[in-house]
């Protein structure tokens, strides 16, 4: 969920609007149009190969799947046992769909800066202004929520280091260590809120007011690669729809 810095690739140079639409488009493809496991598998393969081709961290992306292995296993088994006997293809289809959604979302957040995410979601939320809601505040809340997970993971890591630094011998048993960790969840949340308050103060003292109109340092324009990306997405979508209809 964290932005990866220090990599230059075509996909990163795309406009935030293109990145956002591609992300939503692929998530829709996985959720609605993938009716066969082979199609879902091929789409996953396409994303991974694209990452290799564009010199993105494809290995890191694949390794990140270990975070959701339990979810994949659970969904696979659940979907497989829906019928009278175990349906392997239905199980694989469910697994590859979840995997695809996860890879798309992870790739999207990895290749987008905070400002790019904010820019796209602000545009998405603009119609809500009709109901008196601030699109900027909603977008900011959403981006902070996305970026909050790595902070949360960092906080857990900090506490683990703080525990070892106190000379405490931590158990190797993951279940016992998870139980020992439960009482610390409330302080972790409290500290995360405290840090967010500090961040809010820091932003305000630098003159940030969410609902004030302001300009942008960087203007985002669509270029040739954006149109190419849309073309790839629409061809893929058309193929999927055709496959579903036939």
């Amino acid at each position: 969920m964290n932005q990866q810095v220090g990599i230059k690739s075509v996909i990163r140079a795309l406009s935030p609007i293109t990145k956002g639409i591609l992300c939503i488009g692929f998530i829709l493809m996985f959720s609605i149009f993938c009716k066969m496991w082979l199609v879902a598998f091929n789409l996953n393969l396409f994303i991974i190969l694209l990452c290799f081709y564009l010199k993105e961290d494809a290995i890191g992306l694949i390794v990140s799947l270990k975070r959701i292995w339990f979810l994949l296993l659970f969904v696979g088994l659940f979907q497989g046992f829906v019928g009278k006997s175990f349906d392997l293809f239905a199980s694989l289809n469910a697994i590859f769909k979840i995997m695809g959604i996860y890879l798309t979302a992870t790739l999207y957040t990895r290749i987008s800066t905070q400002n790019e995410l904010l820019y796209f979601w602000e545009i998405c939320f603009k119609p809500l202004k009709l109901f008196g809601l601030s699109s900027n505040e909603l977008a900011l809340t959403m981006v902070i929520a996305i970026r909050f997970m790595p902070v949360f993971i960092d906080e857990i890591d900090r506490i683990r280091i703080a525990q070892i630094a106190r000379g405490a011998k931590l158990t190797r048993n993951s279940i016992v260590s998870a139980i020992n960790f439960m009482p610390l969840l409330i302080p972790i949340l409290t500290q995360a809120i405290r840090r967010s308050e500090e961040l809010a103060d820091a932003m305000e003292v630098r003159g940030y007011v969410a609902d004030r109109p302001r300009g942008r340092y960087k203007s985002y324009k669509l270029c040739g690669y954006d149109y190419l990306a849309f073309l790839v997405m629409f061809i893929t979508l058309a193929l999927l729809v055709w496959k579903m209809m036939s």
Binding site: R158, A162, A165, R166, L184, P187, I188, Q191
Partner: peptide, 14 residues
């Protein structure tokens, strides 16, 4: 036992 330069990095209780 290691006490970090920033004491806050050791705190996690209320």
């Amino acid at each position: 036992a290691l006490a970090f330069q920033n004491p806050e990095s050791l705190f996690f209780n209320s």
